[in-house]
Design a protein around this nucleic acid. Structure first.
Lengths: 153, 153
DNA sequence: CCCATACGGTTGCGCGCGCAACCATTTGTG
DNA sequence: CACAAATGGTTGCGCGCGCAACCGTATGGG
């Protein structure tokens, strides 16, 4: 009983939220890339690993995979690269010798210490252009959508 | 004159907006994939091409690239695939024979007619879980951030 | 105690993407 | 009018990713 047949419906990609989200996420990533890529030679997976290991004393590959929602192979390769550059080190866990405990090296901690403030500043600059109501609604919407899609870590 | 050295700052990836945006965009894409992928065998670039050509009578590869912000090679390959499946057709433009005018075939228009309502419904379902204030702030923030990052089509 | 199963992690492979180079055509300039 | 430069579009190549298969270790059931 709709007035118009479905074929008359149209879709403007530029107004379609899923598309806009993809584009925005790519834009924000690019906006952020200068701090970890151009400056420290890290790509996104490597930066995520460093950011995840950073606050902790040690963690395993799969705990990183779980909290970053990256595929375990992507995590594995990022760690291997970081180890080759001596930014992290791996040691077999004593209680479960399948696991390998991952820690930042001294050089890794130095990069982490430099990188985090820059990344946070870049995030803050981004959010500063929003009005308080926009910011509030935006962050709330992020929460709600993450729960709706079961993305919470 | 900060009280704490920068190395004490820490970063929780799960609370870091650029990361959350990437994750959310991926989640929304996956949530949407069922309608164009599983049902019609289109991937994202192909779906974007169809969605862009759909409302128009004809358009060129680079106008698609501009409005979708996809790389021109990605557009080129998506179109080639769609042509092989006879969902679009190409004809050399009369006034500029470098250009190729792209149109949906009858089959392409049929898929477009089926696909658009499903995609819009899926988008609506997603946004329905937001409160009115969240929705308003979210959409406003999208606008603002797009302008800030110069992403508007 | 043994063996099947599960689990942490790595690796070979195929695929899709972006870069750069390329072809064909058009436009601008002397 | 000719030729250089720019433009629309396609293609060869290298790279990073996910899938599936794999290795080594741990665990549970007979």
């Amino acid at each position: 009983m709709t007035a118009r047949p479905p074929s008359e419906q149209t879709l403007e990609l530029a107004a379609f939220v899923p598309f806009r989200l993809n584009r925005l996420a790519a834009g924000v990533s690019e906006h952020l890339a200068v701090v970890y890529q151009r400056r420290f030679g890290l790509d996104i997976p490597q930066w995520r690993v460093v950011a995840t290991v950073g606050p902790q004393q040690a963690c395993t590959a799969q705990s990183i995979a779980a909290s970053t929602r990256m595929h375990k192979t992507r995590v594995s390769r990022a760690i291997a690269e970081l180890e080759a550059r001596q930014l992290v080190e791996r040691a077999s866990s004593a209680e479960d010798r399948r696991e390998r405990e991952i820690r930042l090296t001294k050089a890794g901690r130095r990069i982490y210490g430099e990188l985090v403030p820059l990344a946070l500043a870049r995030e803050a600059a981004l959010l500063e252009c929003l009005s308080p109501e926009q910011l509030c609604g935006f962050l709330g919407a992020l929460d709600t959508l993450e729960r709706y899609l079961h993305l919470e870590n």
